[in-house]
Amino acid sequence: MTETTVAQVMAELAGLEDPKMRAVNEKHGDDHGVNLGKLRAIAKRLKSQQDLARGLWRTDDTAARLLALLICRPKAFERDELDTMLRESRTPKVHDWLVNYVVKKNPHGEELRLAWFADPDPVVASAGWALTTERVAKKPEGLDLPSLLDLIEARMKDAPDRLQWAMNHCLAQIGIEHPEHRARAIAIGERLEVLKDYPTPPNCTSPFAPLWIGEMVRRQDEKR
């Protein structure tokens, strides 16, 4: 099997570029026009290739970076490398995939969570909040949930969009997973009204925290 080069992959991605898809993606801040299903099919064919992933990342092309995140080995990155990559990730999809597919599986994830959580850059801070939300749901031991609610209550209303969304997700997760804090989480959401009027398609759960919490708790109760 011959080694696949960055140039070969970039040519393949260029052939998959769809102007209509790019126009849709750009409305959400993502500057690429490659169907994600086709991108995942390429990743499945290439399998895990860390050197190729690093080469694709260096192109600064969004589709190439998304592919890089699918074929990389998450545990192979050093802490500072991931920190640099996050600060280079200015489109929402690359940012989200880096956090969810790579950082969460990396041994430096908790260290990065703490560093990013307090970062003055709101986009970087949103990654810290996303990792914190993961811990709220799966490994809450050691987290100070009342202090998290204090921060959300004080800062979420005026936070920039990406950070506000991440803080709101954390608020909802605290209310869903921790009954002892549920009433306060709902009260904070009702008072701040963040995402209260967010357009939600039929059969989808609203991101407005009080409704989100109520719906997820209802589903949990149904399973019992």
Rank of each mutant, 00 (worst) to 15 (best):
M1A: 14
E3R: 13
E3D: 11
A7K: 12
A7G: 05
Q8Y: 02
M10T: 10
L13Q: 03
G15M: 05
D18T: 05
P19L: 02
K20P: 00
R22I: 00
R22F: 08
V24Q: 14
N25T: 07
H28G: 11
G29S: 09
G29E: 07
G29P: 07
V34Q: 09
V34K: 04
V34M: 03
V34F: 10
N35G: 09
L36A: 10
K38A: 15
A41S: 13
A43I: 05
K44V: 04
R45F: 01
L46V: 07
K47D: 14
S48T: 15
S48M: 10
L52S: 08
L52P: 05
L52A: 09
L56P: 02
R58I: 01
T59V: 06
T62V: 15
A63N: 08
A64K: 02
L66N: 12
L70V: 00
L70D: 15
C72W: 05
R73I: 12
A76C: 02
F77Y: 14
E78G: 15
R79K: 15
D80L: 10
D80Q: 14
E81A: 11
L82I: 08
T84K: 12
L86G: 00
L86V: 07
E88C: 03
P92A: 13
P92I: 09
K93E: 13
V94G: 03
H95V: 02
D96H: 13
W97D: 10
W97G: 00
V99Y: 06
V99K: 07
V99A: 11
N100V: 01
V102K: 01
P107N: 09
H108Y: 13
E111Q: 14
E111Y: 02
L112Q: 08
R113Q: 13
L114P: 00
L114K: 15
A115I: 02
W116R: 01
F117K: 11
D119N: 14
P120K: 10
P120V: 02
P120F: 06
D121A: 05
P122G: 10
S126N: 06
S126D: 03
A127R: 00
A130S: 14
A130E: 11
A130D: 12
T132R: 05
T132D: 01
T133E: 14
E134C: 02
E134V: 07
V136S: 01
A137N: 06
K138R: 13
P140R: 09
E141Y: 08
P146Y: 07
L149R: 05
L149I: 06
M156D: 06
A159N: 06
Q164F: 00
W165C: 05
A166G: 07
M167G: 09
L171H: 05
L171N: 07
A172L: 02
I174H: 04
I174W: 04
I174M: 01
I176K: 09
E177C: 11
H178K: 03
E180D: 14
H181L: 10
R182I: 06
A183T: 14
A183F: 00
A185N: 04
I188Y: 04
I188H: 06
E190V: 03
R191T: 08
L192F: 01
L192H: 03
E193V: 03
K196N: 02
P199V: 04
T200K: 10
T200F: 07
P201Y: 04
N203F: 11
T205H: 08
P207F: 07
F208Q: 06
W212S: 04
I213F: 03
E215V: 12
E215N: 12
E222C: 03
K223S: 13
R224L: 11
